[in-house]
Nucleic acid binder design. Structure first.
Lengths: 180, 180, 180, 180
DNA sequence: AATGAATGAGAGTTCATTCAT
DNA sequence: CATGAATGAACTCTCATTCAT
């Protein structure tokens, strides 16, 4: 793997664990065994690095959701989406941690404004695709509510309740959305 | 109003608007027309100030929910809670912004760990009181889901979707929880 | 004991243990359970407190050496002086620590310049009184050497060598000065 | 000369003249025409700079004493040591001033604890090498006494008595140790 | 592509002192 | 005699960024 990619991965991990503002580049460099100048060379600035990371994640999300939209029914896709959300939430906590962070922190939100807009409107569109088949009239609201529900669960699970009953919540949700 | 209280109010506003890490004490002091030393005098440190702010908010939450628990039915209390949540979310965005921030940011979460634990377990308990009357068997999961739903809505509304359909989401939710 | 004296004793202890520059008045106040204003009231400033402490110690030294100069022979007085030096060095380390400190630290030396001069010339005079009887011609040099020897022992014992052989050094010295 | 070395020399001078605690980095930087950040870059912290300075001095001492141990008799080496001590004491007051300071000040003593231990045990060993040849049975005590004597003279000369008779004291000492 | 010396602005914190009560 | 709110200057340290090599 080239230094550039390595740098991105290491920075992602550190920003997730410690927060963006609380992670000096010096630590990133130390961890990656790389000089400060190299980050400037590749990413121009700390914000540049952040934008690159965020963009890559969006690309990943887009890719995943594009492949997934095979010829399944809306309900099936919804359940599949739930399954993948919950399994990822467990396996890749840092990923969610990081993204929640970026959304909520005023300073990062400013830096990433356009990328956040791009990503979230994609997610909304993708979700709406599903709900359009189920309840076209209320698809907008229901999509928003669906997304909010998942975000809220991530928030509670990662940031608030150490003993959040993830498994049972998943079951509740699957049950609820099976009956639609 | 004494300087101490004024300081807390100004700091709350600034921390909410700009994020905690991104708000130097110098700005707080400038805004409050007060010397840096005074913050040390009253709160020991920037973290001390943060803790005081967070604690005060918890006190407010506890107070509100204690008074509210009059002799209404569970369903009525739930609807009342929803009403107050949505009206507050609109009128006091900064309040929610700030609290989401504190939960998600690793550095603040560490500083506030005990206070977050205290507050969130209170909220869970209060919510569970309601769901115990509605569905005792699943009250824990349903409470968690309810809280997550509201947090998620706040997150979407404040942090992600500029055009979040708040009014319609509120109606959806009220409808949903009326039928319980 | 009145607050004033108590304050002096506590400050002496703290300044000795931690060094003058490294002991904020806030700690003195905390330890003495007294407000900051009170120190200003009694001693005008931190330097004022220091001067008072140093002066009091000089008074003590003068008092002790005045009483001591009874009608003993020079050799006897010398041995007596050695005895009292070594026993004090062991029993009251902080006292010596503090005084060495004051002499060596440029900033305190400046503040105390006149008081140091006063004290050290008294000590020299008192020592010389003894050596005048023993070797009038070289009394100045021998007094200086005697004082330096004791100071150096204090320095080694307190500040440098954890395992300084105090007892044997004492014996050596007593032997040496008995033969004069 | 590179900035690093220049910084060390300037800091040594300033710390000696004004005391460590009483010398802000801002003055060091100003004198060296260098930014504050550079000190952090090279020495990590003010204490780091101090440790480097102290260590370098120890290295010098070790080097000097290693070269010196040519094939002279113990008495000759002792006299040579005395000569070099007194000439240095006169020519390089700041050097002694600084080192006395470090030993006596509680805060610096803590920072330098291991380095002080290292240096002083070397000095003791070197001195003992000499006294082992003269009086093997009492070499430990006599070495300690010898070191204490010199330290005490430095203390008196530099810190206490403006009119300390250095020349005559030197003669006395040389006479005394010639007769051993 | 990569280094690391150097900068400079500014952060949080410390602390002696002042002063109204 | 005693308090403690308030100041303001100064301190160390942090850190993103620049730039010559």
């Amino acid at each position: 793997m080239d230094k550039r990619t390595e740098l991105i991965e290491i920075a992602t991990k550190l920003f997730s664990e410690r927060g963006f503002e609380n992670t000096p580049l010096s630590i990133v460099c130390e961890t990656a065994n790389v000089s400060k100048g190299l980050i400037a060379h590749h990413f121009k600035s700390k914000n540049g690095l952040l934008r690159e990371i965020f963009q890559r994640t969006t690309d990943l999300i887009v890719e995943m959701n594009t492949i997934d939209s095979v010829s399944l029914s809306a309900r099936e896709r919804l359940l599949q989406l739930l399954e993948s959300f919950f399994s990822q939430l467990q396996s890749d906590k840092l990923f969610f941690q990081f993204n929640l962070n970026m959304m909520v922190q005023p300073s990062t939100r400013e830096v990433l404004a356009d990328l956040i807009e791009e990503r979230s409107s994609f997610i909304l569109k993708a979700t709406r695709n599903i709900f359009d088949e189920i309840d076209p009239e209320n698809s907008l609201v229901k999509s928003h509510l669906f997304i909010a529900e998942l975000d809220g669960i991530a928030l509670s699970y990662l940031g608030v309740y150490k003993e959040f009953p993830l498994e049972q919540t998943k079951e509740q949700l699957i049950m609820k959305y099976s009956m639609i």
